[in-house]
Deep mutational scan, measured.
Amino acid sequence: TTYKLILNGKTLKGETTTEAVDAETAERVFKEYAKKNGVDGEWTYDDATKTFTVTE
């Protein structure tokens, strides 16, 4: 399944996708990605669109 991440950081904005077996796995991948890019904020997930959003 393809999951999407929307980054709404103070200095970094953008989108990325990952293939994962479930939302929990995708969330771990995306949180590591955000951490590596210095983005830390509020996380939300929309199951209907398989989209995570992190907003600083």
Rank of each mutant, 00 (worst) to 15 (best):
D46V: 05
K4T: 13
D40R: 11
K50I: 02
K36D: 09
A20T: 06
D47H: 09
A23Q: 14
Y33E: 03
V39Y: 06
D46A: 04
T11G: 11
K35R: 13
F52E: 00
A23S: 12
Y45F: 07
E42F: 12
T16K: 07
E42Q: 13
E42H: 13
A26V: 02
T25G: 09
E42A: 12
D47C: 05
E56C: 05
E15G: 08
E27C: 09
T11V: 13
N37A: 15
Y45E: 00
A34M: 05
T49E: 06
I6Q: 05
A26W: 00
T1F: 12
L7P: 01
T53M: 10
T51R: 03
Y3S: 00
G38L: 07
V39F: 11
Y33C: 04
G9E: 03
K36N: 14
N37W: 15
Y33S: 02
T1V: 09
E42T: 14
V39C: 05
G38T: 04
E56D: 09
L7I: 15
G9I: 08
V21G: 10
D22H: 04
N37C: 07
E32S: 09
G38P: 02
K13Y: 12
T25L: 06
A26Y: 00
T51M: 04
A20I: 03
T18A: 10
K4Q: 06
A23K: 08
T25R: 06
T16L: 15
K50H: 12
T49F: 05
E56A: 08
K10W: 07
W43A: 01
V39W: 12
Y45L: 02
G9F: 13
T2M: 13
E32Q: 10
E27D: 05
T44L: 11
T2G: 05
K50N: 07
E56F: 09
T16M: 11
A34R: 01
F30N: 00
T1Q: 13
T49Y: 05
K31A: 05
G14M: 14
T53Y: 11
A20Q: 08
E15M: 14
D22W: 03
Y3T: 00
E42Y: 11
T1C: 06
W43S: 01
K35E: 10
T49V: 05
W43Y: 03
V54C: 06
E19G: 05
R28I: 09
E15V: 12
L7T: 05
T2N: 07
A34N: 03
G9M: 11
T17V: 12
G9D: 03
N37S: 09
R28S: 11
N37R: 12
K13V: 10
N8R: 11
V54A: 03
G41Q: 02
T11P: 03
F30S: 00
R28T: 09
W43Q: 01
K35S: 11
K31L: 08
E56L: 08
Y33D: 02
G14R: 13
T51K: 03
T25A: 15
K35A: 15
Y3P: 00
A20G: 04
G41D: 02
N8W: 11
E32T: 09
E19I: 14
V21N: 13
N37P: 01
E19K: 07
L12P: 04
T49L: 08
G38M: 06
V29W: 11
K50M: 09
T51H: 03
Y3E: 00
E19F: 13
E32K: 07
T18P: 01
T2H: 10
E19Y: 11
T11Y: 13
Y3N: 01
K4E: 03
A48I: 10
G38I: 04
D22A: 04
L7R: 02
N37K: 14
Y3F: 11
K10F: 14
G9W: 04
L5H: 00
I6R: 06
K31Q: 08
K36S: 13
T44E: 15
K10D: 07
A20S: 07
G41S: 02
D22C: 05
E42P: 05
G9H: 07
E32F: 05
Y3M: 01
T11S: 13
E24Y: 13
A20N: 03
E56Q: 13
W43P: 01
T53R: 06
R28W: 07
V21M: 14
D47K: 08
D40V: 14
G9Q: 04
K13F: 10
K31C: 05
T16E: 06
F52D: 00
E32C: 06
T2W: 14
L5I: 03
E24H: 11
V29I: 12
Y33M: 04
T1M: 11
Y45R: 02
K31H: 10
E32A: 12
T18L: 13
T17D: 05
E19T: 14
W43V: 02
K36V: 14
E15W: 13
D40A: 11
T25P: 02
K50P: 00
G38A: 07
L7K: 02
A26S: 02
T44P: 00
T53W: 09
T2A: 06
W43F: 04
F30G: 00
T2V: 11
K4P: 01
K35C: 07
T18H: 07
L5Y: 02
D46E: 09
K50R: 15
G38W: 05
T51W: 02
G9A: 11
T11L: 15
F52H: 02
E56Y: 08
A48L: 14
E24W: 08
W43I: 03
T55K: 06
L12M: 14
E56T: 08
F52M: 02
K10M: 13
T17A: 08
T17C: 06
D46I: 05
Y33H: 05
F30K: 00
D47V: 11
T1W: 11
V29P: 01
I6H: 05
A26E: 00
E42V: 14
T49H: 07
Y45I: 01
R28H: 09
T51E: 04
F30T: 00
A23N: 07
L12C: 10
E27V: 07
E19Q: 10
E19A: 08
A26C: 02
E27R: 12
N37M: 15
F30H: 01
L12V: 15
D47G: 11
